[in-house]
C-alpha cells in the first residue's frame, strides 16, 4: 500500500465539477483521492456452514431420520461467511479513514464502494475510495465518511444533520428442506398454501441484515439504504442480503424545508 501523502499546493479529487464547486462554497477543501482495500479468502465450504436458528419438525411425525427418510429440515445463518465480508468492509473502511487522517482531513466525501470476487467465488475484494476534505475552522473530532458530496451534502447540513459514515451489513440465511418441505410441499397441499420455510429463509436474511445495520448505527440514523438479496436454490436454499447505507447524525432540531415548487420541464 502506498497511501496518499500530502503534496502542498496540489490536490486531486474524484469530484464532479458541480460537486467541487459546491464543496468549495461550503468551505471544504479537497486534499486528495484516498482509498482503502481489502482482499480476502473465503475458507472453503466451512464458510458456508450454518448456525441453526430453527429446527423444522418432521412432517410425518417421525422422531428422526432413517435410510429411506430424509433428515428433518432446518433454518440457519452462515455466520462465518457474513463475518468474512463484514471484516473485509470494515478493514477497507478503516484504511480509507487512516489515509485521510494522515492528510489532516476532517472527512471523506463522495465515497464509492466496490465489492467483488476478483479471482473466484472463494476470494473477496472490497475497494473504497473517495475525496478527503479539510474543513476550514473545524476543530478536532471523529473523521466522517459519506457517499454524497456537493449540494446534497449542503442540503443535509442545512437540515440539521452531520455525516457520520458509510455502513455495510449482511446476512446469509440458509434453509435445508429435509422432510418438512417434502411433506408440506406443493404435492400434498394444493395451490396457494404458504410455504413457510421459503418465507422464513427470505425473511430471516433481510430482517437480520437490517437488525445488524441498526445495531451498527447505534442510535444514529441510516438513510439511502440499498438492499440487494440474492437466492441460490437447491436442496439447500441460500439467501444473501447485503445493505449499504449512509449513517448521519442529527446535530440541530429539524427545520422543515420550504414547500417545493412544482415545475414542468420542457425537455424530453
Amino acid at each position: 500500500m502506498s497511501p496518499a501523502t500530502e503534496r502542498p499546493g496540489v490536490f486531486d479529487s474524484g469530484l464532479t465539477t458541480p460537486d467541487f464547486a459546491a464543496c468549495l462554497s461550503m468551505g471544504l477543501e479537497p486534499l486528495a483521492l484516498v482509498q482503502g482495500f481489502f482482499c480476502g479468502q473465503l475458507a472453503g465450504w466451512s464458510t458456508y456452514q450454518a448456525a441453526v436458528v430453527t429446527n423444522y419438525p418432521c412432517g410425518y411425525g417421525w422422531g428422526g431420520g432413517g435410510n429411506d427418510h430424509p433428515p428433518p429440515g432446518w433454518l440457519g445463518v452462515a455466520t462465518a461467511l457474513d463475518e468474512a465480508w463484514s471484516t473485509a468492509f470494515s478493514t477497507a473502511h478503516q484504511r480509507l479513514v487512516d489515509e485521510a487522517r494522515g492528510l489532516g482531513a476532517h472527512g471523506v466525501v463522495g465515497a464509492r464502494v466496490e465489492m467483488s470476487h476478483p479471482t473466484n467465488d472463494r476470494s473477496s475484494e472490497v475497494h473504497l475510495y473517495g475525496t478527503a476534505v479539510r474543513l476550514a475552522g473545524a476543530g478536532a473530532g471523529p473523521l466522517w465518511t459519506t457517499r454524497i458530496a456537493g449540494h446534497k451534502l449542503a442540503k443535509l447540513v442545512e437540515a440539521g444533520y452531520a455525516p457520520a459514515s458509510v455502513l455495510y451489513s449482511r446476512c446469509t440465511a440458509v434453509m435445508y428442506e429435509g422432510c418438512y418441505m417434502e411433506h408440506w410441499g406443493p404435492n400434498l397441499v394444493g395451490a396457494g398454501s404458504p410455504l413457510e420455510p421459503i418465507q422464513d429463509v427470505h425473511h430471516l436474511a433481510r430482517s437480520r441484515a437490517l437488525q445488524d445495520a441498526a445495531r451498527q448505527a447505534g442510535g444514529h440514523s441510516l438513510y439511502d439504504v440499498q438492499l440487494a438479496a440474492h437466492e441460490m436454490e437447491g436442496r439447500t436454499t441460500y439467501v444473501s442480503c447485503q445493505i449499504l447505507g449512509s449513517l448521519v447524525r442529527r446535530v440541530r432540531p429539524t427545520m422543515p424545508i420550504a414547500a417545493p415548487v412544482t415545475t414542468v420541464g420542457l425537455d424530453d
Partner: peptide
Amino acid sequence: LGEVGRLLAEAHGAADIGRGCTS
C-alpha cells in the same frame, strides 16, 4: 465560510440529539 460551512464546522464533533432510524 458560507452559512453551510459554518454549520458543518459546528456540527463536527457535536453530539447526536435525534433518535435513530433506518430507511
